[in-house]
């Protein structure tokens, strides 16, 4: 999605699962832009860009992988920001829903690691003095 992930959007997504009665656990990951200090300069925002046409096939493969590994997985959802997200705002939301809590935690960690490794997304730190760097 363009820009930060609003808190109201997160609540709305949680509410959408109330009709799936085989779910017993949700696990969430919410990535937030951190205001790091790099060589005396403060990060005020991160600008995300992506190879958007490649994201859908990558996510499809990622989901197939996780559904094969975690038999208790009911559904999983991923939202990632594109564009500028200010420090303190959310840029990645992952919702994992399972029958029981154990696989919710395991699948969540596996999913976030796969996102970090496989998703064609890039980020540029924007500093308070107007400079920037790719990370």
């Amino acid at each position: 999605m363009q820009g930060p992930i609003p808190a109201a959007f997160i609540a709305e997504q949680i509410g959408r699962h109330s009709d799936k009665l085989n779910i017993g656990a949700h696990a969430f990951f919410l990535g937030q832009v951190r205001s790091d200090c790099v060589e005396g300069k403060t990060v005020t925002a991160i600008e995300y860009s992506a190879y958007e046409e490649m994201i859908l096939p990558v996510v499809k493969t990622l989901k197939e992988d996780l559904f094969n590994r975690f038999s208790d997985l009911v559904c999983l959802h991923i939202w990632h920001s594109i564009g500028v997200v200010k420090a303190g705002e959310a840029s990645l939301l992952v919702i994992i829903s399972t029958g029981h809590r154990k696989e919710a935690f395991q699948a969540l960690e596996a999913c976030v690691e796969l996102i970090k490794e496989k998703l064609p997304v890039w980020k540029k730190e924007l500093f308070s003095d107007g400079t920037a760097r790719w990370i």
Binding site: G31, H80, V112, I115, K116, V121, W122, I135
Partner: peptide, 8 residues
Amino acid sequence: LLPPFAGG
């Protein structure tokens, strides 16, 4: 050409 991914 894809530099190292940095999502999240």
